[in-house]
Design a protein around this nucleic acid. Structure first.
Lengths: 170, 170
DNA sequence: CAACATAATTAGCCGAGCCTAACTTTTCAA
DNA sequence: TTGAAAAGTTAGGCTCGGCTAATTATGTTG
């Protein structure tokens, strides 16, 4: 009997932070989590209690925090999803690293396992193509540089069309 | 002087709904918006007041709702962003139409203008490639079918590695 | 034109998730 | 070993975005 365990975006962030802190050697303590997520310490306490209730972490007040098996499994999914998005934004779309990171943080809570899998697959595909001499990202970058103005313009045109459609009924 | 006007995800949804209702001929009235977004009517009233305060809609109690110029401009961006994501999930990643739609609804609030532009550009790129005889989506679909198991397995392996790393310190 | 149906709003509530200020527990060093 | 600093938690309050129930406005029809 699997527990579907839909976590809120916020709780996913906490779980991810705990995983990342554990992984990089830094202790997963309340304070570190607060710093990592840029939230006040009491917010962390509340989140930890919720995660503990859901049996995703081992949590004793004033102690270290570790992931349960279920928690580690979920954290794994969350981290991979994040990585796939960030990599896609950066390496395929050519968004600069910072913006890619920020967008991934926000978008990650929206995409489920199916899309994550296909996204990961797509990244592998682009990689494989590159190895057989066809660099899709480079081709796209050239295409984008060349047609950027057209793309922007086509957006603007659509906006104008909409305006004429909507402007006069009040 | 541009108004940056960062809307919440929820308000973006309301603005998008008003736009879509106007567009498809159905009157943008409180009731229709509630139906479209599957929320209770009083929730709509509150949202409309906020949007009116921000001068994105014309709103008189008990009347029809229309977009201001600023509102129409923002709605346009929101709708294009949504469309780009949905199209990408469906036509490039090959996710089924329903799931693509649902994911787009959630993810759209996370991506900004820069990424929307590049995403739109990427879709145009894939389209252009197809016209010159190179169908990237088909190639990907074949690749995905072939390597799906490997991709899943590589995910699983990473999870297992993580478990061994985390399992024993509590 | 009165009365009823429908649409919309008001009033009041709730939960999630954040915050600050104050208090408690733990740690560490003189 | 004791007391201050650091870490953590409790208490209480805020905003956002939902909800229901009750009320008011609109419009429709006999």
């Amino acid at each position: 009997m699997k527990t579907p365990q839909q976590l809120s975006a916020s709780l996913e962030d906490y779980l991810e932070a705990i995983y990342l802190l554990s992984r990089t050697g830094k202790a997963a303590r309340s304070k570190n989590i607060a710093e990592h997520l840029q939230v006040a310490r009491p917010s962390v306490t509340a989140a930890l209690r919720t995660l503990a209730e859901k049996e995703l972490i081992f949590y004793k007040p004033y102690g270290y925090i570790t992931l349960t098996e279920k928690g580690a499994w979920m954290a794994g999914r969350i981290v991979r999803r994040h990585a796939a998005l960030e990599e896609f934004f950066r390496d395929v779309l050519g968004v600069d690293a910072d913006a890619a990171e920020r967008a991934a943080c926000l978008a990650e809570h929206a995409i489920g396992p199916e899309i994550t899998l296909r996204l990961t697959g797509y990244l592998a595909f682009v990689e494989a193509e590159k190895k057989s001499g066809h660099n899709i990202s480079d081709s796209f970058e050239a295409f984008f540089k060349k047609h950027q103005q057209d793309i922007k313009a086509s957006c603007r045109r659509r906006v104008e069309k909409m305006h004429s459609h909507l402007a006069d009924n009040y």
